[in-house]
Design a protein around this nucleic acid. Structure first.
Length: 262
DNA sequence: AACGGAATCAACCGCTGCGTC
DNA sequence: CGACGCAGCGGTTGATTCCGT
């Protein structure tokens, strides 16, 4: 079922707003407020749909909008909030006075995501999707591991993927379809839970069979591997060296108190 | 100066959640 | 309690600007 676009009605204008239209909208809202966006354009005499008016007001015309470049402080705040909240742009915007969700989303996609990859930090696209840089991403082609789970369940393309990608455009992808809806949803708490559980065992000095690693790098406990495989419905093994390295990079992020011997 | 690719950002689209009837 | 309508949200697109060659 395809819903008709909201502006499909005859005569409704699309595209960039003119200064005249802006003025009409500002004046109308100053006088009458915006209790009903759908009725607003008709009452204000604008040939726009209510949705378009709402967006224009919220993202551009609102008097409390802060214009201009983001400060370093704001950018760091976005990075931190994004780590906590994922792609919940409106929630992030609510903590940055004068900035809109659209603006923050744009800054994230154009600046901050790239900066984090350059810094060799994990990029969390959502609470259940993590982009991880490899140890040599600073010197060679940036290679990432993406672990994602479906955010929405209504479309036919519902799937989950584990992807390694390189910036030369070659992707190696393992794909897991579960159209029956049996996919186990995993979020940050899963990672914390899995890794803190094993951390406590490591702290007790318990011996673990290690897997992964290589080139002098530590591997990870088999127990963690098994839980990750179970949790994500994966079948990863000792051969996924990059994945393991990145997994541990991520573990260090979540659990800074991890003992040095891991 | 001209061109092409990359970067930027405003705006649109489609979906979800919530309130109302 | 289901249907409907609306506001809000996040992903995506496309026009414009910037920058390197």
């Amino acid at each position: 079922m395809v819903r008709a676009p909201c502006c499909e009605k005859m005569g409704l204008k699309k595209g960039p707003w003119t200064p005249e239209e802006d003025q009409i909208l500002i004046k109308y809202i100053q006088l009458h407020g915006h209790s009903n966006w759908r009725a607003l354009p008709k009452q204000a005499g604008l040939l726009r749909c209510g949705k378009s008016c709402r967006l224009r007001w919220i993202n551009y015309l609102r008097p409390d909008i802060k214009r201009g470049n983001f400060t370093e402080e704001e950018e760091e705040t976005i990075i931190k909030l994004h780590e906590m909240l994922g792609n919940r742009w409106s929630a992030i915007a609510a903590r940055l006075p004068g900035r809109t969700d659209n603006e923050i989303k744009n800054v994230w996609h154009t600046h901050l995501k790239k900066r984090l990859i350059k810094r060799n930090q994990p990029v969390i696209n959502s609470p259940s999707q993590v982009l991880l840089p490899t140890p040599d991403s600073a010197k060679g082609p940036c290679r990432n591991v993406v672990v994602s789970s479906p955010q929405r369940s209504t479309s036919d393309d519902m799937d989950s993927t584990v992807t390694t990608s390189e910036n030369n455009g070659n992707n190696m992808s393992m794909k897991y379809d579960d159209l029956e809806g049996n996919f186990t949803e995993i979020d940050e708490s899963f990672w914390s839970e899995v890794l803190s559980a094993d951390n406590s065992e490591v702290a007790k000095g318990k011996e673990y069979e290690m897997v992964g690693g290589g080139g002098g790098e530590a591997g990870i406990p088999l127990a963690v591997l098994e839980r990750v495989n179970d949790g994500y419905g994966l079948n990863l093994d000792d051969n996924n060296v990059d994945f393991w390295y990145n997994l541990f990079t991520r573990a260090g992020e979540i659990l800074p108190e991890l003992p040095d011997n891991i």
